[in-house]
Design a protein around this nucleic acid. Structure first.
Lengths: 364, 364
DNA sequence: CTGAAAGCGCTTACAG
DNA sequence: CTGAAAGCGCTTACAG
């Protein structure tokens, strides 16, 4: 029985059933292994399926089962090594559970985030892992709850939104980094981040705030800035607002400019960069100014990327297990998908100070 | 009309139709905009949809239309910046056409590749972009044709498989890199790649082969090695087999070892690394040996990654537009999905020699 | 312009 | 153990 013209349609269960001379129900049972089927028939069905190169249509299955075995991942920018590592972690874990991964980027644009979320809802993903973009809207997150789609946030949690999150404790991580510099004897310590200037001002005027606000509900840049303030405050060092550098936009170039302009004048003896993008800008700026690291300025970066071990000097960094964040987020999401309804929680993964050659005591 | 227990089911077209007091057909037409619907009814339907927060089930739509508006991407390892850039290019392009992207990694394992392909077929992706893993099997590619699923290969084409491909001309790129070194006056030029030793031996014994074999059907490592041979042969320089370093496995560590051992003895004056992973290994090895670049050894890397501009000296590299590869692959795939059936083609994207500070004339 | 009906390809009660 | 039938949520001829 050949098809009318070359365009051979994909075989369906009906075709397999016909070839094996059984009902569709039996064919389905034999292949997918639910229910009981006589052994001989099973063999016949399998043979027919093989012969026809039958592949079950998961779309149809998803329709019936009301689950797609697919999760959506909304990340900022897959090109950023932080995300590509996270995604790798998610993907490996999902694979182990026969779950596929649909990926999109937002570039920190909330309206794009919203649209992508709609698309993923339309595709009926079983759940989502999302890096929440910066912005004021929150309504689109509620939508997920309404549709009964579990979500796990990564990198930071959101105030007012009940959902699991997996992230590092940014305040603590930064605090540790700053303490490392303080221990070396630094006093004039600068930090570059994309934290908004308004937040910086608030914290400078009222440093106690760094202890009272819930940093786990802030974006990482804010949390890390709070960590900086905490460490300085605890050490009893008055905070010099000029040492809080804002990249004013998220790019290495912006960070570069910010660091360049601050370090052109009377300069701090140490610099902390709040993430891998900021670290690139900071490093480049110091190089441009021909500042020797760590003799003239100590530098502590964030994220243990390979290049930080390739440059001279090798960078002291705060290491963050990005892949593990992805893995834990996937695990948690799958638990939720499978009906676990314990109270929402924020899962913290540990950072680690990796001391290498870019930090040292200040020159006398 | 409240649901029995809290688990409110998602609204369907039926619910919207009921709320708007029209038929499902009309509701569908009004919302998705096919066919004509009276204006007043349209408004009523839209209002009902809004009210119920209706989201069409794309699964059902896909079932009917026999298309999912989803493509699959099978890459080697999303953590490798080459892939994350390619994927970004694919994803951006797909987004523009309202197409989503399902991503998986193979880690160069052909059996995993095969399984992933099956899964993607099951999910009825409209097409796939695949980085073919190394290995002898080809059967799983035929399967795609049988199922009528268009595929575009990236990074290299496959002999015996008719399909589009998007990639750089590796032989030419390498040739250019080697010519750059030759022009500077180097003679003893080494190359490190993951090309199999067997191929290396063949090419050394019979360099003309580098001109006669179809390098566009080779893996990039092989093609690039052929380019090396071509350049040397053309320059009339006998090829020293000791200068062809095989990483024997794909990792920076392997490349590191290979370079380390070769450059510990009488050393070549220049080194070319065949891709970004090899470049990391090569650079590290030279650093470990405290070889000054470019005074003692010139280094030419592959892939214009940010770190190559951060290290000292900044690396001369062959730049490859990875994002563009992704973009072109997506474009071509979408054309195929839309029925374009011109003869298959391999699309080459240009590489570019980016000369910086790691290459110079050899010391007298 | 509008609606009733069929169908996309599965799975699962429900009979037998 | 096996099969006929219903249903998942859409869209699209086909009538009216």
């Amino acid at each position: 029985m050949t098809e009318p013209d070359g365009a051979r349609a994909r075989p369906t269960l009906r075709d397999v059933a016909a070839a094996a001379q059984v009902s569709r129900a039996t064919a389905g049972r034999a292949l997918a292994g639910y229910g009981n089927v006589n052994e001989e028939l099973t063999l016949r069905v399998r043979a027919a399926a093989e012969e026809l190169r039958y592949r079950p249509n998961e779309l149809a299955r998803s329709m019936r089962d009301n689950r797609t075995r697919t999760i959506g991942v909304i990340c900022g920018d897959i090109e950023n090594p932080f995300f590509s590592r996270v995604v790798r972690g998610i993907s490996d874990n999902a694979s182990q559970h026969d779950v596929e991964v649909l990926i999109t980027n937002t570039d920190e644009d909330q309206s794009r985030e919203q649209r992508k979320m709609d698309v993923l809802i339309g595709k009926r993903v079983d759940g989502m892992i999302v890096y929440p973009a910066q912005g004021p809207s929150l309504g689109h997150y509620d939508q997920l709850a309404q549709h009964g789609i579990p979500v796990v946030f990564i990198d930071h949690a959101l105030a007012h939104i009940e959902a699991d999150a997996v992230m590092v404790d940014g305040a603590r991580a930064a605090e540790e980094a700053i303490c490392h510099l303080l221990d070396l004897g630094h006093i004039e310590i600068a930090m570059v981040s994309e934290a908004p200037l308004s937040l910086a001002r608030e914290l400078v005027e009222n440093p106690e705030l760094a202890f009272t606000i819930d940093t786990t509900q802030q974006r990482q840049s804010g949390a890390r800035l709070a960590g900086y303030i905490r460490a300085m405050y605890r050490a009893g060092i008055p905070i010099n607002p000029r040492n809080i550098l804002s990249s004013d936009g998220y790019s290495a170039d912006r960070a570069y400019s910010a660091v360049l302009s601050r370090f052109s004048s009377d300069r701090p003896t140490a610099l902390f960069a709040s993430d891998n993008v900021m670290t690139i800008g900071a490093f480049r700026a110091l190089k441009t100014l021909r500042i020797t690291i760590p003799a003239e300025v100590s530098l502590v970066g964030f994220d243990d990327l390979e290049w930080t071990r390739l440059v001279e000097p090798q960078l002291t960094v705060v290491s963050q297990p990005a892949q593990k964040i992805g893995q834990l987020a996937a695990e948690q999401l799958l638990r939720r998908i499978n009906g676990n309804d314990e109270p929402q929680q924020t899962i913290f993964v540990d950072t680690q100070m990796t001391v290498r050659d870019s930090s040292a005591a200040p020159r006398e």
